Simulated scan of single mutants.
Amino acid sequence: MVDAKMLNKMSSAPGFIAALDQSGGSTPGALRLYGVSESDYQGDEEMFRLVHAMRVRIMSAPAFTGDKVLGAILFERTMDGDVDGEPVPSYLWEKRGVVPFLKVDKGLNAEENGVQTMKSMPDLDTLLIRGREKGIFGTKMRSVIGHADKAGIAAVVEQQFQVARQIIGQGLMPIIEPEVSIKSPTKEQAEAILRDEIAQQLDKLPAGETVMLKLTIPTVADFYAPLVAHKSVIRVVALSGGYSTVDACEKLSHNHGMIASFSRALAENLRVTMSDADFNASLAATIDQIYAASVNKS
């Protein structure tokens, strides 16, 4: 069973989810945005040490609390790390009031039928048990949709829900993330197929089983309203998908019931060279901006 206090917060409190889950492939880009180039480190271990330091700086900032940040999605190495000697998941929940999630996918397969499904996860149960023992509330897993191909999108959604049922079985809350690329030439058509496929899978869930959805901000405002209202959906969150903070927040503000789960847009104004005062002030302003777009709808 998922933690009842965390579930209550995640299902009803105002706010958004921070995505701090860049993995091996996306970490260099996150560090570059932060002002750390590849020439500043040698090898993966040093790279992960630097990105963990960046995440700790974010998580320990005064504005990063459960008042506006409902949850945080973690990379596995971040889950296994600490903040001032305390394990990250317990630090987030007990010290900051932020619900911890874990990214569990292992990357993407090559594109087929206009989509990229998730690579196999043979050790998923082991990871889920370890995460649960560390205080993780839920998980996140990402697929990518590049074109409005019905067979491809159906395969993505079926795989997502199949793994979600495995996650539910381990007492965790799955965030299902079939990302429609904002660069897709058939984005709006892909979203129509995706909405129907997700609705069909939601209708098949046994009574009492619930999921969260993480979706690209749709081309048509409130297009995902039927999913937001579905009895088996705890929350629908939006990914920034490469949009700037300003653009992502503007688009999100027109989608009722959707809250943010931003990664790049959360950290785009943060730099390693900032003083702590400037860093904290910049992050606080961005948190306020994302919170407003998640809560105040136009």
Rank of each mutant, 00 (worst) to 15 (best):
D3G: 09
L7I: 02
N8Q: 14
S11V: 03
G15K: 09
A19V: 07
S23R: 14
G24E: 10
G25N: 15
G25W: 15
S26K: 10
A30T: 04
R32I: 05
R32K: 15
L33A: 12
V36W: 15
E38N: 14
G43P: 05
D44T: 09
M47F: 14
R49G: 07
L50D: 09
I58S: 07
P62L: 04
F75V: 01
T78G: 00
G81E: 01
G81C: 03
G81N: 04
D84V: 01
G85S: 08
P87Y: 00
P87D: 00
V88R: 07
P89H: 05
S90M: 06
S90Y: 03
V98L: 07
F101N: 01
G107C: 06
T117K: 15
K119G: 05
L128E: 07
I129R: 15
R132N: 04
K134W: 04
G138T: 08
T139A: 00
R142T: 08
R142L: 14
V144L: 14
V144Y: 13
K150C: 04
G152V: 01
A155G: 11
V157R: 06
F161E: 03
F161W: 05
Q162S: 09
M173Q: 10
S181W: 13
I182M: 10
A190V: 07
A192Y: 06
K204L: 07
T210L: 01
V211E: 01
K214R: 02
L215Y: 08
T219A: 12
T219N: 05
D222F: 03
P226T: 00
H230T: 00
H230S: 02
K231L: 02
V237N: 05
V237C: 06
Y243D: 13
D247G: 05
D247S: 09
K251N: 10
G257K: 05
G257Y: 10
A265V: 10
A267C: 09
N269T: 10
L270T: 01
V272I: 15
V272Y: 15
V272L: 15
F279S: 12
N280C: 03
N280R: 05
A281I: 02
A284D: 13
A285Y: 09
I287N: 13
D288W: 09
D288F: 07
Y291S: 02
S294H: 14
S294L: 01
